[in-house]
Amino acid sequence: MTITKGLSFALVGLWLFVAAFPFAWTFWGSFKVQSDFFSKANWMYAIWGTNTINETGDAFTGNGYYGAWVIQSFWKNFLNSGIVVFFTVIISLTFGTLGGYALARSGFRYAFWILMAALVFRAMPHITLVSGYLLPFFEWNIWGHLPTTIIVLVAMNQPFTLWMLHSFFLNIPKDMDESAMVDGCTRFQAFRYVIVPVMWPGVITTGLFSFLLAYNDFTVTAMLLSEENETIIPAINSFLGTTQVEGKVMYAVAAVVSVTAPLLLLILFFQRQIVSGLTAGAVKG
């Protein structure tokens, strides 16, 4: 054990603490009352729940969750998010597999240009695109509806999906579909019967990231959805405005924890795929 090794362990330890502590703290605090979680007097209150016991008679309270899910009807936003996420993932994967496959199998120059254009599109800040949508969407009366948001999110997802699936399809040997075509399949049949059965690992990895994009989106959903169609992330932002005034910050805290919990499960089950997805683009660079 040298000094360098000790230092590097210390750094890793420090990072892991910094990464995990805020979540642990907020999770624990979400079962307390506001005067404990935001305790000026003594931060130990948040751990033992001193005021929570005084106010509710128990060290843990579900008031924040009740307020968020029942009083503020957070379940509606969750439902909206479910719809948006489900359709965004399905549609962007369908478009993306077809396009990614074509790009991986075409050696023509325009395939390269499409990939470059996708890279440029990937770099566009989403809010600049939103500023282009608003006026036309208002004029055509399609603003505020879930399908509009879904198709916009699908489009924003495409550059990333294309890149990822393109590099994934490059790893599937060309011989497989080409021999199917020698046997008399059309290109689409070769894709359907030879490629589709073996593409699922790549599709699942890409799907995870499409899921994250749709689930986590704030910019698009905040600007393009009307109040009754709001998804979870803009909902948290908007009841931050209203609840802060009424001294009900704990509702927002509970909502934040509720939103983070599914992500934790996602990492638990798909850690390997997420890691391979993060690095997939890098390897092909």
Partner: peptide, 10 residues
């Protein structure tokens, strides 16, 4: 992974 996957707003 958690700090990266959680949405920036949250």
């Amino acid at each position: 992974l958690l700090p990266f996957l959680v949405t920036p707003l949250v």
